[in-house]
Design a protein around this nucleic acid. Sequence first.
DNA 1: GCGCAAATTTTCGTGTAAGCAATTTTGCGC
DNA 2: GCGCAAAATTGCTTACACGAAAATTTGCGC
Lengths: 209, 209
Amino acid sequence: MARSDGLRERKKQATRQALREAALRLALERGPENVRVDDIADAAGVSPRTYNNYFSSREQAIVAAITAERESRVAAAVAARPADVSLADAVLDAVLEEYTEPGDDARDALLMITRHPPLRDAFVDATSAIERPLADAIAGRLGDTDHTTAHVLAASVAAAVRVALERWVRPERPSPSGLVVPSGSLPELLRSALAPLRPALDAAENRRP
Amino acid sequence: MARSDGLRERKKQATRQALREAALRLALERGPENVRVDDIADAAGVSPRTYNNYFSSREQAIVAAITAERESRVAAAVAARPADVSLADAVLDAVLEEYTEPGDDARDALLMITRHPPLRDAFVDATSAIERPLADAIAGRLGDTDHTTAHVLAASVAAAVRVALERWVRPERPSPSGLVVPSGSLPELLRSALAPLRPALDAAENRRP
DNA sequence: GCGCAAATTTTCGTGTAAGCAATTTTGCGC
DNA sequence: GCGCAAAATTGCTTACACGAAAATTTGCGC
């Protein structure tokens, strides 16, 4: 049971998609503050209680319209790199590829997210969702032995991405040392956040039997 | 203003401590499910709203009785290691020192935590609190240049600790590959979770000017 | 001590997350 | 098609998180 291509599963995905799209649309129209959960549920044609079966916070639903499926795509991208590419490069490329936004319709959504702290938090928090699929992808490349290492590396990559996203969406705050670092472009931030992890990725790969 | 030793600050800490101790005591007496936020507030002699000014969930308050001040202690322990100790060793030692539980009065509290999923989650989530102080401590050892690297390394260490804690508190679930990995002792788990990060810590340290 | 400004606590109100049990829908073997 | 078991949706209820503004407490210069 629970086949991944059954009608049941597709309907669930459709409901989830309807909910997050309705949430984003309403938030863009009225501003996130003026969107009630009941409105989202109404717009998606389900009961408020069902809405809550899919998302555990209003912010999560809005943000999900941007981050949807990102988790599995990152993992798939890592797994898809040729075997002769180093793990570090595979991860870096995959992350850059997935987090470089198409920027057309997501542009104003991202603007809204950065302007509303609760949405910012939900957006950054969504990063941790890549952890589990990424751990599997890394484990696959490392030869499936030592699942702990793969898990730790995936968690570290997710943490680095989170750090980069934080610097990207937060208005720069004056540091106690006086100097405020200008937040560069997202690819730039991702590169420099992931760079310190490269030695760890290389070492894990080379210790592979 | 906002002196760290004023009466005001001490009262705040006292209130915080009263709240988390009341939360833990009531949870142990009645079981976490039978503790209302109002009860905790009553027991601590403050209004329910004040309780919420200190903790943003009931689970957080209960768990805080175990994890209190851990964040700053880890950071202080890292900063306290002699300068000729490698960064990786300093971090590993500091983490092991702080996360090896005294185990006397915390024993039954931890038992309760492991038996209640919401508490488990809060307990594991509390790990991320070490991130910020640890980043400062690491930055101090690295010479204060490149705050990004320090931040990423701290976040990775926190993530690794989180992975270790997860494996420790979760009842082992049968993996799809059939074999269930036995959850070892906590120091053991912490060591193996932090091991993959050692190359990254070494590299950051050696690249220091 | 006095009094003012800042910080903290409280009261009040609103919207929300989630448990539970009843109901409807779906999948599947016959 | 039929019907049954599993799964999803729904209504109902409860406890809760949090914003705003009023009230209280603290710090500090005088």
